[in-house]
Computed example of a mutant assay.
Amino acid sequence: MKSTIKDVARMANVSISTVSRVLNNPDIVVKDKRDKVLQAVKELNYSPNALAIGLIHKRTKTLGVLIPDISNLFYAEVIKGMEDAAHESGNNLIICNTDNNEERRLSSLKVLSEKQIDGIVFTSEPIFPDSYEVFKRLNIPIVLAATHSLEYDIPSVKVDDEQAAYDATDYLIKKGHTKIGMISGSMLDPISGLPRIQGFLRAHRAHNIELVPEDRIEYGKYLFEDSYKAMKALHTKFPEMTAVFATSDERALAAISYLHEHKVKIPDEVSVIGFDNTRMAGMCFPKLTTVAQPLYEMGSQAIKMLDSLINGVALDEMRSYMNHWIVERDSVKQFNQV
């Protein structure tokens, strides 16, 4: 049977409050009593309850992380970065998969509150008013990763999605492509949908390439199956395209799969560029050229920011933007106009 603080107090012949003081502020306890308590702790192999210690110090050394879909490979490296940074700072993580569902998101926040966590990292999704109200009631530090909020003063870390999409499109145009299609998330998504569409369109304007967005952009969810359907619809309405910008690696792999099954050679006939640089980008055939996000560093930075806030350290900037870059592999080639 597991020893309790009462057992320690009985063996050391001291009060429970004395045991508590030895465990949490030993310098204020006289040496002989302190030694008796520590000896009893050792003999009984007593391990104080972490939550109880947290209540004393008003810290549980536990952080919550809300992920919209943990099956998405985007989060593998992000969470690894979070875990390593949490371990380094002496924190533990509770990962909650919200499944892009409002009810599950609010339920997860309730559970995290009950666990008396010290802070939360909220990823990818927009901050809706109902979530913000819960954040205010929790009254603990919040950091956003791979998302941000212009409405609320919540610290965030992400890449500049609009500029990253511009750079991806600009890269294709400089490779000679002017007939570029796009598989994108919804324009109603203010985090990665609309900004990447805006970057795509801005690059065309910068190169004086006219286009009708409805003719060259297909919208859909991020899952492979939905992206495959989007690529099919795009290829049907825009068969003359010579390149595709897919706004995630999973979307890009769906595009490659569709084109391969329909005997379209990649990149000889159609080039494909993705977004994220997840592990799968280097595993497919042809290997995927993509816009890289520093996924591991983003997760690590979010935890470091959160730990600083918990410890009362002011952040240098409210909204932190990380660098992105293009990783060239085999799915894009120079297009030479005849």
Rank of each mutant, 00 (worst) to 15 (best):
L51Q: 12
S17P: 06
A9G: 14
I53K: 15
T123P: 00
S124Y: 04
N100M: 02
V78S: 12
N97Q: 08
N101E: 09
T60V: 02
G90T: 06
S15L: 05
E102W: 00
T18K: 01
P48W: 04
A52L: 03
V30A: 14
V121K: 06
D69Q: 14
I117E: 05
L23F: 08
Q39M: 03
I16R: 06
N101Y: 07
H57K: 15
K58I: 04
A50E: 14
Y46G: 09
S124K: 04
K58L: 04
L73V: 07
I95V: 04
E102V: 13
E125M: 14
I67T: 07
R104Y: 09
V14Y: 06
L66Q: 04
E88H: 14
L23Q: 10
K58F: 04
P26S: 11
F122A: 08
Y46P: 09
N100D: 15
E125T: 15
L66K: 13
S89L: 02
C96H: 08
I127D: 00
R59A: 13
I28Y: 01
V111K: 03
N101T: 11
T60L: 00
S107W: 01
L66N: 10
G64D: 00
R10P: 02
P48M: 04
D69P: 03
K115S: 13
R59D: 10
Y75C: 00
I127M: 00
K110V: 09
T60M: 01
S108F: 10
K33P: 04
L112A: 11
T98G: 01
I67A: 03
K36E: 10
D84C: 04
S47G: 12
A40M: 02
K61S: 12
E88M: 03
D35L: 05
G119M: 05
G64E: 02
V14F: 01
L109N: 09
E103G: 08
S89W: 02
I95Y: 00
F122V: 12
S124C: 08
K80C: 07
K110M: 04
E43M: 10
H87K: 15
S47V: 13
D35C: 06
K42P: 13
F74A: 06
P68F: 10
A85I: 12
R10C: 01
V8M: 00
L112D: 08
V121N: 03
R105S: 02
N24K: 03
P126W: 02
D130G: 00
M11G: 05
E43T: 11
H57T: 15
V19L: 00
E83Y: 13
I79L: 00
